[in-house]
């Protein structure tokens, strides 16, 4: 990973976490700025500039540190929240909604970890029952974990609070920072996966699916709770065969009963993101199937097609020995 510029907020320049990152990236000179907001998203930087001109901001997150997740985001009947520890991702997945979410692809790492944990704590006190906190909504949770260095602190926090569930979502195989953690049942690592042939076409720079599965197996051996997200499912002629092969491959490498859940979701985009993806990848096979604005204003496949896709993928997993209660539909409110 090579950043073309590092911009550090003055207020955190002398913090330990900042200095550690700067030491690790010593080949790239840094500049000190008052606030990352003086530059990040101030101009509309094209998404694909991340290939040649990617900046890293080291900053503090102010304002909203924890945000409520939309309905149907995670497992049913429980509250789900995201927390902001980073913005943007080093990978380049053609379907990624981040390409229309921020008007810059630059990476921001928020290093005020204690304040983020305090916000999580505050949120937790307002909510009874099991609550989920997800780290990978605006960035990949593990891809830069060796740099950002917050995992130990967060693990320590969550391990003392069994009611709170902590989920790290990733497309990386960068699990080394996790291996020094003593896992508790409320720490969950989930891998986003697609059939390898699709991942090769769509998930540029992300770890190959085989490596993600190997990483998942290693974590299970270390007693971590592991889950998978088959999201997005893209309509294509051999979807059932592809997912059957994927399910078989997972079942061969990982004991099925050790997998906490598998979420399934069909391809969808907010309208702005759809336009941006079309602009960035006009030839992508993501657009070979017609999409329409659905009730929730997201661009989706027609309902009958989504139902077919989800059923096919669901069947692929069930026929490989996965249990119905391990599977759930993500962001598919109208599919139940």
């Amino acid at each position: 990973m090579k950043f073309s510029r590092i911009l550090v907020e003055k207020a955190i320049l002398n913090e330990n976490a900042t200095q550690k990152i700067l030491a690790k990236l010593s080949s790239c000179p840094y500049e000190v700025v008052n606030s990352y907001l003086d530059y990040f998203e101030k101009v509309r930087k094209p998404y694909l500039h991340k290939r040649t001109n990617l900046y890293l901001y080291l900053a503090q997150k102010k304002g909203e540190l924890v945000k409520e997740a939309p309905n149907a985001y995670g497992t049913r009947g429980e509250s789900h929240f995201y927390y902001y520890n980073a913005l943007n991702c080093i990978y380049e997945c053609e379907y990624c909604y981040l390409q229309g979410y921020f008007s810059s692809p630059d990476i921001v790492l928020f290093l005020n970890h204690e304040e983020i944990l305090a916000a999580i704590e505050e949120r937790a006190t307002q909510q009874p029952g099991r609550i989920w906190f997800h780290g990978g909504e605006f960035s990949d949770s593990l891809a830069l974990a060796h740099l950002s260095g917050e995992l130990l602190l967060f693990a320590e926090f969550f391990s003392k609070r069994p009611r709170l569930q902590w989920e790290l979502r990733t497309k990386s195989a960068n699990i080394r920072p996790l291996l020094s953690i003593d896992p508790t049942p409320n720490i969950h690592v989930s891998f986003s996966i697609s059939p390898p042939s699709l991942a090769r076409l769509l998930e540029h720079k992300a770890a190959p699916v085989e490596l993600r599965l190997r990483a998942a197996r290693r974590l299970i051996e270390k007693n971590f709770s592991v889950a998978f997200h088959c999201d997005p499912i893209v309509a294509q002629p051999h979807v059932e065969e592809e997912y059957r092969a994927l399910a078989k491959s997972i079942a061969e490498q990982i004991p099925i009963e050790a997998i906490r859940y598998i979420s399934l979701g069909a391809l969808r985009f907010p309208q702005g993101v759809y336009d941006e993806v079309r602009h960035n990848y006009p030839k992508s096979f993501l657009f070979h199937q017609y999409m329409i604005p659905s009730q929730d204003k997201k661009m989706r496949y027609r309902k009958y097609l989504r139902r077919q896709l989800l059923q096919k993928v669901q069947n692929a997993f069930l026929s490989s020995g996965f249990l119905p209660e391990q599977l759930y539909f993500c962001m598919e409110d109208d599919m139940e």
Partner: peptide, 15 residues
């Protein structure tokens, strides 16, 4: 490649 704009020290968002 990409053209950005500024008025004084303030950047214009559109590029």
């Amino acid at each position: 490649r990409t053209v950005y704009g500024a008025s004084g020290l303030l950047f214009w968002h559109k590029s």
